[in-house]
Nucleic acid binder design. Structure first.
Length: 398
DNA sequence: CCTGTTTTAGTCTAGAAGTT
DNA sequence: AACTTCTAGACTAAAACAGG
C-alpha cells in the first residue's frame, strides 16, 4: 500500500511503515581479555570489552561496547571471564552474559570503573546529575571539558565528520596526528592550514605526500562556505544533532540571526529564550544546552575564530507558495480521509498555521460531519468553510 | 611500474539514555 | 509513546603512499 506508506512517511532515520523481523542471532563464546575505557566527544567514558577474536555470524568479533558502569555491573563481567557473544540484530557485537559466573576458584576482581579520565591529564570523572530529575545519571564523564585532549580530538573528529563539515581526507587518523603535532587544535586551525604553510612539516609524516596535502587543501576550500545546518551540527552542542540543527536552521535562517538570539536568550525571561523553547522539538533541556554553549567564553572564542575563516550559507526559508501558506486553519468535526494529527501536520508542512479555535483571524474552517459550535461561529464571522474533500482538493496541487 | 600498507569512507546498523 | 542523540562495531573498495 504505497498510499499508506506515503501517509506515514519517515522519521529521521527510519520509515514508519516498515520493520525488520530477524531470526535470533548466532552466538559464540570467547574470553574477555581486557576492559578498555574510551572517551567520547562529550566526555563520556565508555567501557569496551576487548575479546579474544571469535567468529560469530560470519565475522570476526574482537570488541564490544559495555555501554556504562551500570551495564558492567549488571553483567558482572570480569577480566578472564568466558563470555557469550552475539551480533545484536545480526550487526552489532554484544556481550550477552558471563558463562562461568562461579569462576571455579580463579581469582577475579569485579571491574573497578575508573574514577579518572584515561587521558594524560587524568581529570576526575563524575556521574553527572540528571538535568531534569537531579538524580545521578548513568554516564560517567570526564570533567575536564575544554582541557581534556581526548575530548578535544573527538570534538575535532566530529567537526569534520560527514554530517558536519564533511572534509574529505581528514579522518580520525589525520585529525589525531595534526592535533598531536599542534597543527590543528581548534576548528579554525583547519582553515588556516594552507596559509600557515606547514606543508613541509606535513609532508614529513609517513605515508603523506604532496598529493595528500593538495587534496586536503582542496577539500578544505570546498567547505569554507558552509550551510547553517552543518555548522550547527559541527559545533557539537549537546542534544543538537542533525534533526535539531535542521530545525534551528530553518527557524532562524541565518547565523547572524541565530547567534544574536542565543546571546539574548541567556536572559531566561527574554523573548528570545521563550521563542527558542516554543519551537516544536526544543524543550527546556535543549534550550539550556544551546544557551549555555554560547554563554561559555571558551566556546565563544572558538566560534569567533572559526567565523573569521568561513562564511555561512543562509537556510532557504521553507517553501511558501502553497495555497494555504501563512493562512490560519481550524479543523472541526470528524475527518474521514486522515486523522486529526495527520491533518494538522500536513497543513503545517504547507506553511499553514493550525489553530484550535475559530476567531476573526481564522482563514479557513475545515468542517467534517458532526461539526457544531465552531462551524456556527465561523459562519457568523463570515469565515470560509469547506469540507475535508474540498480541503484536500485545495492542497492537492502541492 | 608493481606490490604491499595505511587510511578513508561507504555499507550494514543496535542499545541505552535522554527529550518532547 | 515516539523520537533523537550518542556511543559503539565489522567488512570492503578505493585512493594514495613507500619502497623495491
Amino acid at each position: 500500500r504505497l498510499d499508506l506508506q506515503a501517509r506515514l512517511g519517515f522519521v529521521s532515520r527510519s520509515p514508519r511503515w516498515a520493520m525488520a523481523h530477524k531470526f535470533p542471532p548466532e552466538q559464540a563464546q570467547t574470553i574477555l581479555e581486557r576492559i578498555d575505557i574510551q572517551v567520547g566527544r562529550t566526555g563520556a567514558l565508555t567501557p569496551v570489552a576487548k575479546l579474544r577474536p571469535v567468529t560469530v555470524g560470519g565475522v570476526v568479533v574482537s570488541n564490544a561496547s559495555l555501554h556504562n558502569a551500570d551495564e558492567v555491573k549488571r553483567l558482572d563481567v570480569r577480566v578472564g571471564d568466558t563470555v557469550l557473544i552475539q551480533r545484536a540484530g545480526d550487526v552489532i557485537p554484544q556481550v550477552v552474559k558471563v558463562l562461568d559466573p562461579d569462576r571455579q576458584g580463579r581469582p577475579a576482581d569485579p571491574f573497578a570503573f575508573p574514577t579518572h579520565c584515561p587521558c594524560p591529564l587524568s581529570t576526575p570523572a563524575v556521574r553527572e546529575l540528571d538535568e531534569k530529575t537531579g538524580e545521578a545519571g548513568v554516564i560517567t564523564r570526564c570533567s575536564g571539558e575544554f582541557a581534556c585532549p581526548f575530548q578535544r580530538v573527538r570534538r575535532l573528529e566530529h567537526f569534520v565528520s560527514r554530517q558536519a563539515f564533511d572534509i574529505e581526507g581528514l579522518g580520525k587518523k589525520q585529525i589525531t596526528a595534526f592535533f598531536e603535532e599542534n597543527i590543528i587544535t581548534e576548528p579554525a586551525d583547519i582553515f588556516t592550514l594552507k596559509e600557515r604553510n606547514d606543508v613541509l612539516k606535513l609532508e614529513a609524516r609517513e605515508g603523506w605526500g604532496e598529493t595528500s596535502a593538495n587534496n586536503l587543501f582542496a577539500a578544505i576550500e570546498e567547505r569554507r562556505h558552509i550551510p547553517l545546518e552543518r555548522l550547527l551540527i559541527a559545533l557539537g552542542i549537546r542534544h543538537v544533532g542533525q534533526t535539531t540543527a535542521r530545525l534551528l536552521s530553518t527557524s532562524y535562517l541565518s547565523w547572524q540571526n541565530f547567534h544574536t538570539n542565543m546571546l539574548a536568550a541567556m536572559d531566561r525571561h527574554s523573548d528570545a529564550y521563550i521563542q527558542l523553547t516554543a519551537l516544536d522539538g526544543v524543550g527546556e533541556v535543549m534550550a539550556e544546552a544551546i544557551v549555555q554553549y554560547f554563554a561559555e567564553p571558551h566556546n565563544e572564542g572558538l566560534v569567533e575564530h572559526l567565523l573569521a575563516q568561513i562564511t555561512v550559507k543562509d537556510a532557504v526559508p521553507p517553501k511558501n507558495d502553497s495555497p494555504v501558506a501563512s493562512k490560519t486553519v481550524v479543523f472541526t468535526g470528524k475527518l474521514v480521509e486522515m486523522s486529526r494529527d495527520e491533518a494538522k501536520a500536513g497543513a503545517a508542512a504547507l506553511g499553514a498555521k493550525v489553530a484550535g479555535s475559530v476567531s476573526a483571524k481564522t482563514d479557513y474552517l475545515v468542517a467534517g460531519p458532526g461539526a457544531g459550535s465552531k462551524l456556527k461561529k465561523a459562519t457568523e464571522l463570515g469565515i470560509q468553510t469547506m469540507t475535508e474533500e474540498e480541503w484536500l482538493t485545495l492542497i492537492s496541487g502541492v
